[in-house]
Amino acid sequence: MGRALIVDDAVTVRMYHRQILEGAGFEVDEAENGVEALERALVVPYDLLLVDVNMPKMDGYTFLKEVRSTPELRAIPAIMISTEAERRDREQAYRAGANLYLVKPVRPEALALRATLMTARGESR
């Protein structure tokens, strides 16, 4: 499948998403905010980013904008996952560079499927 980075400040959410993605065959790393995620993504080649919106030090939008403006990270597919009301976030997420926007709590099957499809597409490029 590939390697995924989960970026979320809630440990329970990270564990939950890890379980789902590992079940779908991904290798998984975790980061607690956008800055740490950048530190990791610059070292490890990820096939998928799973990004929360609200995090300390660097929020998910800012992180994705950084990713999209960094040549070596630009092409990594990203799913943004938010606890917030959709009306506000969906558009901002896509503008920041998300390929998909999901609302928490996610259904395990839905996340596993989308993650698989997105990285498969990436591989065939």
Binding site: A31, G34, V35, L38, E39, L42, K57, M58
Partner: peptide, 18 residues
């Protein structure tokens, strides 16, 4: 790591270090 302190700085990766 600056990740617990600030996002003032850009994270740069070089061959030997972050």
């Amino acid at each position: 790591s600056m990740s617990r302190i600030t996002s003032l700085f850009k994270v740069r990766r070089f061959e030997d270090a972050i």
